[in-house]
Design a protein around this nucleic acid. Structure first.
Lengths: 163, 163
DNA sequence: CCGAATTGCTTTAAGCCTAAAATGTTTCCC
DNA sequence: GGGAAACATTTTAGGCTTAAAGCAATTCGG
């Protein structure tokens, strides 16, 4: 029975490499996220989730539904409800019920919201550039490619479990 | 004054590439994290933060202080306090005050905690392997390298602001 | 020594986040 | 048309998370 040697049938497979990769990916994200969170708070007294939500809306001049936002931000529906509530309260968002479908809420940035967001976004972009400053343009491109592939792989795997 | 043309002094620099890279990094992490969180809950009825904390302790048979855990997990002190409280309550952790420094709390996995963690970790490793399954070994290595560089770059940048 | 930092941890207040159940609305299809 | 299924959002209950303030214990500099 040479097969058992060549095929390593019973060997519990070693996935330590992938595990380390995942931990490193998580570390990078946590590190950068924490840095951005702190700067947003100090410079603009705004939370990261609020900034993220405004970033979504800035790309959609005609507004978005709560479901759209929820999918884009990859957070739960209930989460968006609360986030929007606070941003409407502070005058950054405008929210109205759709006239064609009364289930749907459409939200937009107010003039104030847009102005404040643009100011923050400009600075935010320089922070990100600085955080990634040691990567060469080529490395940035390669990282983009590998992360795109990672995303596709993860989506496929997630889909297999919950189709 | 040809300088202004050749040097592009006033051009606001374009960092769109880095920004897209950051968003992609964040997407990958959020995607995988959400998947792992859901599986841990469904299979073992445990939360991701609890699993992460136990993972730290599994690597430290002699226990760790709360500060150590806080640094390793990159979360706030107060966060660890609450997390540990609940895990001691459920019998997974043992906590005692250091005899040489009465400020310090040393925590360890209990026998139960270790047994349960090992069971979860084994399965967890296969999930991660599956999520990254479409990457070749070479791509995994390259991604590791680029993320290491990213981490170093981000740490340097963070250090510049808060030394 | 002894007071002043520093360190390790906890508390507090506020906000973020999820899963699951509930509510109201629309669509589908017989 | 009318009930069932699907959909969009909100509510609920519980847990996570942070920044900042507070409390003890230790260390450090004079």
């Amino acid at each position: 029975m040479l097969d058992s040697e060549t095929k390593a049938v019973e060997t519990p497979e070693d996935h330590a490499e992938e595990l380390r990769l995942w931990l490193r990916l998580l570390t990078c994200t946590t590190l950068i996220e924490g840095e951005v969170r702190g700067r947003l708070r100090q410079r603009f007294d705004v939370t990261l989730p609020r900034f993220d939500l405004m970033a979504q809306l800035d790309k959609a001049p005609d507004g978005m539904t709560l479901s759209d936002v929820s999918k884009r931000m990859m957070v739960s529906n209930g989460n968006v409800t609360g986030l929007v509530e606070r941003l409407v309260e502070s005058g950054h968002l405008d929210r109205r019920t759709s006239e064609t479908d009364r289930r749907v809420q459409v939200i937009r940035l107010t003039k104030l919201g847009r102005a404040e967001f643009r100011k923050m976004a400009a600075e935010h972009e320089t922070w990100i550039a600085d955080l990634f400053a040691d990567l060469t343009p080529k490395e940035v491109r390669e990282l983009m490619r590998l992360l795109a592939k990672t995303k596709a792989s993860a989506q496929k795997s997630a889909g297999r479990r919950r189709p």
